[in-house]
């Protein structure tokens, strides 16, 4: 049984969304309203369990009276707003943002992005063969997970999950400035020398696969990673009495990855090192 927290009823705001009168509860973002109305808005840095950072700017929409486009993920809906989600101006910005990202980082493991590139007619190759890329090599410094910053779009989600929004460990932060900004530990030390507690909550929120289980990273490297052959089973972690939910991703009868449902009212997709990585005993033949 899932507990549903009760809240006082919220006032409904009326506004126009693509020419249609729409209502959304007070406090909802434009993105919430769009999703409730069945409109697909591309998002990358938005996370269902995190405060919007609005860094990627793929979710921009046009609001009547605003000088610039506004990020749907962060901007609250207001009564009387006139929002347009699919104007040429919006489509142009989304297209260019996708081109800029795809030309500078490796988006091959980012879910959804290939469809958006097609939908918005993005041509990342137009910046030429010499366009600068972030040009990073995967950091493999521990047995549990890999940080491949060549795939990092700097959405800040891992930093927020590691820091004050969830884990309060603060092992990583953004370092450097501009195009040279990277997610980093202090002095780029290996994770084993950092404050990291290997909860893997950063992997849970990473939208691009820049952070991945070592198992997934190795399987992708040898070509055996195949989501179509994977099953997902949600169960309860057996380590302690908190009762966190685990979703075990199993391929060929082996656990290859562990995630956690984001809608769990207690953990919101967060786990500790035991729940996230302590599954080897299950698959040792001696049991």
């Amino acid at each position: 049984m899932t507990a549903v927290p009760l809240r006082p009823p919220r006032r409904l705001l009326e506004f126009t969304l693509d020419g249609e009168q729409t209502r959304a509860p007070e406090g909802a973002t434009i993105l919430d309203a769009c999703r409730a109305a069945g409109k697909d808005i591309p998002t990358l840095c938005q996370g269902d369990t995190l405060t919007p950072k609005n860094a990627c700017r793929t979710c921009v929409v046009e609001v009547e009276g605003a000088r610039t486009l506004v990020p749907a993920c962060a901007r609250g809906a207001e009564a009387g707003m006139e929002i347009r989600t699919d104007t040429p101006r919006v489509r142009h910005s989304r297209k260019v943002v996708l081109e800029l990202l795809a030309s500078s980082v490796d988006l091959s493991t980012t879910p959804g992005v290939q469809d958006w590139l097609k939908e918005y007619g993005a041509e990342p190759a137009r910046f030429g063969p010499d366009a600068a890329t972030v040009n990073e090599t995967p950091r493999v410094d521990n047995d549990l997970y890999v940080r491949d910053y060549d795939k990092c779009i700097l959405c800040y989600k891992c930093v927020d999950a590691c820091g004050e929004q969830w884990q309060n460990t603060f092992a990583i932060a953004t370092a450097g400035r501009g195009f040279d900004a990277r997610i980093s530990t202090e002095f780029d030390a290996p994770l084993t020398d950092s404050a990291c507690v290997y909860c893997g909550n950063c992997i849970e929120v990473c939208p691009t696969g820049a952070l991945s289980f070592k198992t997934e990273f190795d399987m992708r490297a040898d070509g055996s990673w195949d989501p179509s052959r994977q099953t997902e089973t949600t169960t309860v972690c057996a380590y302690c009495g908190v009762g966190c939910n685990l979703t075990l991703h199993v391929q060929d009868n082996e656990i290859v990855k562990v995630s956690s449902p984001h809608d769990n009212p207690v953990t919101h997709g967060n786990l500790c090192v035991k729940g996230r990585f302590g599954y080897q005993h299950v698959q040792q033949g001696r049991r």
Partner: peptide
Amino acid sequence: FRDESCGQCVPCRVGTVRQEEALRR
């Protein structure tokens, strides 16, 4: 602008680099 962009949002972080590349070409 490429040097002084803080790097927070994509249009400015990558856009200033692409503009500089184009102007250099």
